[in-house]
Design a protein around this nucleic acid. Structure first.
Lengths: 207, 207
DNA sequence: GTCTATATGAAGATAGAC
DNA sequence: GTCTATCTTCATATAGAC
């Protein structure tokens, strides 16, 4: 039960990798409870005995899967963001990246399963938060602080402003996506959502 | 599989009510997959046979539970909101009500189970949306439109502005609550979150 | 390490007595 | 309508051969 991203998430044996891949797909598609070890073994193309030779239990397998996903997530986030000359262009690019990611089927599937299991696997919620949202918000808040120092914005609480911007970027679309009510947004929809958030944000915080 | 709130959600027999109450508690505490019909029957104080005499299947029971919760939800929402003279006071009250509700343990438990099962029970996601978020957003957008007509605000897209306000009210706190990382917010925390959202909103949309 | 075959338990659902 | 007792299926996990 330690879903923290390990430093050396080294390659396991090929069979173990197959198992992880199959488990990832099934856990994300069907959730934890609805995924059977039979199904994982079958999709991975190994026997259940082999599966249990590599992972002590279903819970351990789930934990490993989440840890890897968080690791990938944090690697994605550690890419330095593009910064344009213009503040508006930078905010728009940040927003575009965020919305595209967070509305994707893959991200939503992960989000769903983590939220669903967080009350029963407390470590998983924390790992996810530490390796994802916390980093994103911290970096964005730091960016806002810098923009204020340079006189481009005027913000009393940069951290909270960062949260608000993220909240506006999600909007109702994120809920509708979580509820499976709507397909992934088109590029135009993303652009409209981002432009509206950037607009409101800059109006509120212009010097 | 029709989780829509029925018009006459009349009282069922006392035993059936006990079953629904037990199911509600367990589904919300443990999720759909982790809740067994044995456990529901035991908590309700009836036999499994009685349970199945009233509800054809686990799925039907879940469906009925969600339908009732959505009905309660929409009844709560249909209370006319308090409107003060001052726009800021009205927004603050709306925000306070919303944040208090959406950060509560009960609302979060419902939110989690609905999001988790939405991909497998499509009707449930839609019922929830129709009876909850859609109404809230529609009413708030109408309120904003009126405020614009009276010259108190200047908003190009009231519906989107409503979504943004809701998004800011949730902020990071909602995520941390969903992940079980933090206890219910104190009144002071709620007030700070609401005040910040109202502030940003009014700065952005002042005439 | 990997497989086939199986132990063991718990799940959803039902039969039949009262 | 309600219960006790049970059927059937499928789950997690393991024993033992290769």
């Amino acid at each position: 039960m330690a879903a923290a991203p390990r430093a050396g998430e080294a390659q396991l044996s090929p069979k173990a990798e197959q198992v992880i891949d199959a488990a990832t797909r099934l856990f994300l598609e069907q959730g934890y409870g609805a995924t059977s070890m039979d199904a994982v073994a079958k999709l991975a193309g190994v026997s259940k005995a082999t599966l249990y030779a590599h992972f002590a239990s279903k819970e351990a397998l789930f934990d490993e899967m989440i840890g890897r996903a968080c690791l990938r997530h944090s690697e994605t986030l550690s890419r330095p963001g593009v910064e344009h000359e213009e503040l508006r262009a930078t905010l728009t690019q940040i927003g575009r990246d965020f919305v595209s990611f967070v509305m994707s089927d893959a991200a939503l599937a992960m989000y769903r399963v983590i939220i669903a299991e967080a009350p029963r696997f407390p470590e998983i919620g924390r790992s996810f938060y530490e390796s994802g949202p916390r980093i994103t918000l911290g970096r964005f808040a730091a960016f806002l602080t810098k923009a204020c120092e340079q006189g481009h914005l005027r913000i009393a609480e940069p951290r909270r402003a960062a949260e608000q911007f993220i909240g506006m970027l999600k909007g109702e679309l994120h809920l509708r996506r979580l509820l499976s009510l709507t397909p992934p947004p088109s590029a135009e929809q993303v652009e409209a959502q981002v432009a509206a958030a950037v607009d409101t944000f800059m109006r509120a915080h212009r010097p």
